[in-house]
């Protein structure tokens, strides 16, 4: 009954068992990750691992929809976990602080998919590289201003790597990008788009395989651009 409306979609008919069997690890539970994780849990992805070192602050509340005034000062991961368990008490939610080389192995253990929804360049480069090294499928979503970028990197598929490469092939060397202004709806739009892509990847839909999506969040347009392997990439070996 819980998924009756979801399973009216032909491609999601009978998908609840599959989604419940998948494990997803999410880096960052702020503007993107908080809502995205909640949407995934709602769709039946109930084996989740979440990571974030931050506590809720007043300046988060305009865009980070899981959090309330009384959560200020509390760890985002704990509030997010509580919200997920209130939504579905069958959920198993692992909680980690900031992810680094010392705890990534444990964080990503058994994960079918890692979503990088973190808020800085260094973390993004590290997470992609770590996922590539372990051949774990990886979704990158980022937002700033009215721009959103979203792509799945199917690192578990050798043919994908051969043809489309990795996140480093796409982004090159990513400098430390300054925080951009952002409206709440822009963050929520990208959180929803990331959850949608994650559900498609978990459900075996390959329509967006090999593409990065470029969102114009002001004019509501999305451009699909083909990914291209960099034959000299220092991460995926050229």
């Amino acid at each position: 009954m819980r998924y009756a409306r979801q399973e009216l979609l032909p491609d999601f008919k009978g998908s609840s068992g599959l989604l419940a069997s998948k494990k997803v690890a999410v880096v960052g539970v702020g503007g993107l990750g908080g809502l995205c994780t909640y949407l995934l849990a709602g769709a039946g992805v109930i084996k989740l691992t979440i990571a974030d070192g931050d506590c809720v602050s007043l300046s988060n509340l305009h865009r980070q929809v899981l959090y309330r005034m009384h959560d200020i000062g509390h760890k985002k991961t704990e509030i997010c976990k509580k919200a997920i368990l209130e939504l579905d008490d069958r959920a198993e939610v692992g909680v980690f602080p900031e992810i680094n080389s010392g705890n990534f192995e444990e964080f990503a253990a058994g994960a079918d998919l890692v979503l990088d929804l973190s808020d800085n360049s260094a973390t993004r480069m590290f997470i992609s590289k770590a996922c590539f090294a372990r051949r774990i499928n990886y979704i990158h979503a980022a937002v700033g201003g009215y721009r959103g970028i979203l792509s799945a990197f199917w690192y578990a598929d050798p043919e994908f790597i051969e043809k489309f490469g990795c996140y480093r092939c796409f982004a090159g060397l990513l400098p430390d990008l300054k925080p951009a202004g952002i409206l709440g709806p822009a963050a929520s739009m990208m959180a929803s788009a990331a959850a949608m892509l994650a559900l498609q990847v978990l459900n075996g839909n390959t329509d967006l395989k090999g593409y990065v999506q470029l969102f114009d969040l002001k004019n509501n347009t999305v451009k699909k651009l083909g990914l291209t392997k960099d034959r000299s990439c220092p991460v995926c070996g050229g």
């Binding site: 960052g28 980022a142 937002v143 700033g144 982004a171 990008l177 451009k223």
Partner: peptide, 10 residues
Amino acid sequence: LDVFTLVAGG
């Protein structure tokens, strides 16, 4: 050509 600035915010 589509040229765009990368973003890293979450």
